[in-house]
C-alpha cells in the first residue's frame, strides 16, 4: 500500500493504451463478497461499465495483468490491498 487507504479496496493501475483510453492512471475498487475475486472477475466488472472499458477489455483485445509487480494469469486471485496493473502486451527493447 502506498497510502493510508483502508485495506478493503483493490488498487488498480492502468498503463499505456489502457491509461489513455480510460483517462486515468489508477483507481480504487471495493472488493466485496466472500468468494475469491480473480483478475478475470475484475476485468469482467470493469468491462460492464461500457464505453472505453468495454472496447479496450473486450473480446479480441489482448490484456495482460500483474499483481504486486508480478505477471499473473487471469485466474490469479486478488485481495484487498493488492496492486493490480492492467496493460497491453509489452513492447520494449
Amino acid at each position: 500500500m502506498r497510502d493510508n487507504a483502508p485495506a478493503t479496496t483493490l488498487h488498480i493501475v492502468y498503463l499505456a493504451r489502457l491509461r489513455e483510453a480510460f483517462g486515468t492512471t489508477e483507481e480504487r475498487l471495493a472488493l466485496t463478497g466472500a468468494a475469491p475475486t480473480t483478475v478475470a472477475d475484475v476485468v469482467t466488472l470493469l468491462r460492464q461499465r461500457g464505453g472505453a472499458y468495454a472496447t479496450e477489455l473486450g473480446a479480441g483485445r489482448a490484456v495482460r495483468a500483474a499483481v504486486n509487480h508480478t505477471m499473473v494469469a487471469p485466474d490469479a486471485v486478488v485481495r484487498p490491498g493488492d496492486e493490480l496493473a492492467l496493460f497491453p502486451p509489452v513492447t520494449g527493447g
Binding site: L15, V90, T91
Partner: peptide
C-alpha cells in the same frame, strides 16, 4: 534481449504523419 522484448514492462508509442499510435507486440518476438 529476447526475454526483455517479451517480459519487461515497456510500451512504445510512435508519432507518425497519420497521428500517434501505440506499437503492437509482435508474434516474432
Amino acid at each position: 534481449m529476447d526475454y526483455l522484448k517479451t517480459r519487461a514492462p515497456f510500451w512504445k508509442k510512435e508519432e507518425t504523419p497519420q497521428g500517434a499510435r501505440w506499437v503492437d507486440a509482435r508474434a516474432s518476438d
